[in-house]
């Protein structure tokens, strides 16, 4: 089954007098349960593609299908509902709501979904245990390290059972150990839960774990490399 299908996506941005090409005729299919890295230098279009997949940004032309939904045709509220129920997001930084504790951040999405209090609390605590932060439930983001914050963000992204997680430079602000722990958490979730991961990164440590590596440059896909083995079965490649 195809989790994401992008056909002939085009997107341009205006910066001053310049027109910058964000996506240039990008077509891509991503299967359910796959673990995909979008890589490339800054400005290559990987984040633009990720945002388009997540309904955070609209392409100028082309079609995007996530599951059975045509993302490019949805209105603001429907896009918000799709992100709420079907997609988990992990961003580079500023991932957590600063006034909510770790547990409350994880509960946040479920609370908007209308999950009953007891149920969402149990789920949030279970997720914290799963990401190794069982003792940190009442800590505010400012009391957590960068790696811990990203783990909480991952817990929030998957707690409501999305089929797709989109992560944008999730390891950019992490030290080596935290980055490895985070990517191994992604791999475990991909293997154990069958969640589709699409990760935009230029971190070679992350790329080393990916069975499918899509390289982008100037808004185009320049290579789409399938590697044998599942996520986690691949050995990290030296950077």
């Amino acid at each position: 089954m195809t989790a994401i299908r992008c056909s002939q996506l085009n997107k341009t941005f205006t910066q001053g007098d310049q027109i910058i090409c964000g996506l240039d005729d990008v077509s891509i299919d991503i299967e359910e349960g796959s673990f995909v890295c979008l890589s490339g230098p800054s400005g290559s279009g990987k984040t633009t593609l990720l945002n388009a997949m997540g309904g955070l940004d609209k392409p100028d032309s082309g079609e995007i299908q996530v599951g059975d939904k045509r993302v490019d045709l949805l209105g603001k509220s429907d896009l918000a509902d799709m992100r709420l129920h079907s997609i988990g997001f992990v961003f580079q930084a500023y991932n957590l709501i600063p006034v909510l504790t770790a547990r409350e951040n994880i509960e946040f999405v479920m609370q908007i979904q209308g999950v009953p209090t007891a149920q969402r609390r149990d789920k949030a605590i279970a997720m914290l245990e799963e990401v190794g932060l069982a003792d940190h439930e009442d800590r505010l983001p400012s009391q957590l390290s960068g790696g811990q914050q990203q783990r909480v963000a991952v817990a929030r992204a998957i707690v409501s059972g999305p089929t797709l997680v989109l992560a944008d430079e999730p390891t950019a602000n992490l030290d080596s150990t935290s980055a490895t722990q985070l990517i191994e958490l992604f791999v475990a979730l991909n293997r154990e839960r069958g969640i589709t991961f699409v990760i935009a990164t230029h971190d070679t440590r992350v790329m080393a774990y990916c069975p499918r590596l899509i390289r982008m440059e100037d808004g185009k896909i320049i290579s789409d490399e399938e590697r044998t083995g599942k996520s986690g079965e691949l050995q990290p490649q030296p950077s």
Binding site: G54, L56, K76, S77, A80, D81, M82, R83, L84, H85, F89, F91, Y94, N95, I97, P98, F108, V109, I112, R156
Partner: peptide, 15 residues
């Protein structure tokens, strides 16, 4: 940025 994050996570503009 926080508002952008909440929107990205699925919070409707009306909320």
């Amino acid at each position: 940025r926080e508002i952008g994050l909440m929107m990205a996570l699925g919070m409707r503009p009306g909320w």
